[in-house]
Design a protein around this nucleic acid. Structure first.
Lengths: 340, 340
DNA sequence: TGAAATAATGTAAGCGGTTACAGTAACCGT
DNA sequence: ACGGTTACTGTAACCGCTTACATTATTTCA
């Protein structure tokens, strides 16, 4: 025990350079002038000693971690890669580090969120990884946060960045109706309580209504934005001999769309000839699927980037409120029945 | 300034519960017995005060961060999602946190690696995100590390976990030769100096040789395991009127394969009728591409999981050396010309 | 030219925990 | 009944940095 870590401390540097630790600290943080001569000497000594400040000590003393946290609901969907990529880039560019964790309100009774004020300077909160109460509590102590793919709960003026879901979905579904004469459109709902899911459902319904099609609860399954779940849900639906007829499906997102196409194909349906399928997100590979997926392009990497930028704004005490609503764009490919 | 963070400290808890801070600390860390009565009182007080230990203070005093770092070369390839997912799961399960960063030896002159001994208890090092010297330096101070998709440099007994590249590639390319009569197989090299890239090239060459086909340097392009780069490389290659003939391409990885298929299609070639294309990795969506991609399945999530497990083994002082070589499996789909 | 401002540096008190060391009380076996 | 354990708790010295405050030398300027 008591194995003294061999790491060199600020004191070693100070001694070696013949100055006080305060001077070293000030030079490192560039927050007070230091004579050119000393600066030069310090550069040399620090290089020689390969001095690296101990993060925990800096954190403790300065009360800032230079770490920001990204709280996700899960990580296995390809949707998260660009999100991570976007945030990581700006985080790095600001000289910060990124702590990534998954958490879901489900598990909260027992375990507290793994990241928060105790180990980060601010949080990027994806969807419903935290509950409204969690958010309120953190906001109360003025902990910097920005929400991703979720608008702040009433009376919590948190910045948020998300994408336009409803009208894009509306247009997408309407495309199915108007261009392809579909009237029995299956909808695979996303995770319950998730906002994207809610707005996509709203857009779906509004498109139906705008075109005189009655919403039919029997045409709604649970896809959970997950390929496997969508696959099984549809399999089960199809397996049930007397299922209601349908001629198209809006899968909720691209990942679920894959599951849908897969299930449909397994059961002998052709996409899009028999059943049209559309998704949402425009994943990196969606253009190359078979058939190429008609979907909505969500600028996910940009979402990550902007969310991170806004968080850094907060850290600089810039006030920042309101939600950034990034535009989405419907991308027509072949899975809806179009030729291109 | 000097805004005293309102956070409650261990001293508050101690006072409130009428015990010393040492007792509180012991109870929290369960590293010494505490009377049932005191334990009960502490539970109550800590809940009332919503006490959360300050990570930095714990780190500084205990000299462990309960954070492990994952150092990647980049994050935009879908390949990284499962890797992250795998590591995150076991990290969380061990009650640790995950610091994710990208770094590349290119940038090293100026900037030191963002994660290391100063802010983590151990590192998962992907491919050549660190140089041999970096590794040697860290190993010298006995910093726990496990390598991912890279075998340790000679004389550095670091644990590592990677996947079998060579023989799988050999079989894959041989499939092209034997089953599809291909003899002019284009190869898109991955990032230079990256081991996967090296072994795949080796496998490619050995398959050629085993079948009496001479290796032709003119049939090698740089794809860098990147869709866009592969796309442009092949476009340029094809744009050059008198390019050497080829009848198949091994793209290096699935992401590059997409770029290849894309380029080929743009130029009017049919895949696989005119040109067969195969990749490596078996990304989440590769089965659903158009055409479904013949590739090699790499258990990437498992790689992440095992690497993390081995790192935790190291943290528990279990000795662990040698490389875990995960088996890969060639997955025949349609992009090679097979019917299923 | 003397007072005030500025530059450069040092001293030492924390930051919020952990833990070595020490002490007291109850318990154990002979 | 007594030395030796064991269970529990407290005191206080760190961990490695930042920073308020103090100090001295050097400018600046009315």
């Amino acid at each position: 025990m008591t194995r003294r870590s061999s790491s060199v401390t600020i004191r070693d540097v100070a001694k070696q350079a013949g100055v006080s630790v305060a001077t070293v600290s000030r030079y490192i943080n560039r927050n007070a002038p230091v004579s050119a001569e000393v600066a030069h000497r310090l550069d040399k000594v620090m290089a020689e000693l390969k001095y690296v400040p101990h993060a925990a000590a800096q954190h403790l003393a300065s009360r800032k971690t230079r770490v920001i946290g990204l709280l996700l609901t899960n990580m296995h969907n390809d949707f998260f890669a660009p999100l991570l990529n976007g945030t990581e880039q700006v985080v790095r560019q600001h000289g910060y580090n990124l702590l990534v964790a998954t958490y879901h309100s489900d598990s909260r009774d027992s375990v507290p969120p793994p990241i928060g004020p105790h180990n980060t300077d601010g949080l990027l909160v994806f969807a419903d990884s935290l509950t409204d109460e969690d958010l309120a509590k953190l906001h109360e102590i003025e902990f910097p946060m920005v929400l991703i793919h979720r608008t702040p709960p009433a009376s919590l003026p948190l910045p948020s960045v998300t994408v336009e879901n409803k009208s894009a979905t509306h247009r997408l579904v309407e495309h199915l109706i108007l261009q392809h004469n579909k009237r029995r459109i299956l909808f695979l709902r996303g995770p319950i309580h998730q906002e994207d899911s809610f707005w996509r459902e709203t857009g779906y319904k509004s498109a139906l209504e705008a075109n005189g099609i009655e919403f039919d609860e029997k045409l709604v399954l649970v896809g959970d934005f997950e390929r496997e779940i969508a696959y099984r849900a549809l399999n089960q639906f199809l397996g049930n001999g007397e299922h209601v007829a349908f001629d198209a499906v809006f899968a909720g997102d691209d990942d679920a769309a894959i599951g849908v196409i897969n299930s449909l194909t397994d059961k002998g349906y052709r996409v899009p000839e028999d059943i049209a399928v559309v998704g949402f997100d425009d994943l990196r590979l969606s253009a190359f699927l078979n058939p190429p997926l008609t979907t909505v392009r969500a600028p996910t990497e940009t979402v990550g980037r902007i969310a991170a930028e806004r968080l850094f704004g907060l850290l600089k005490n810039e006030i920042s409120e309101g939600t950034t609503l990034l535009p989405t764009e419907i991308i027509i490919r072949r899975s809806c029945g179009c030729q291109s």
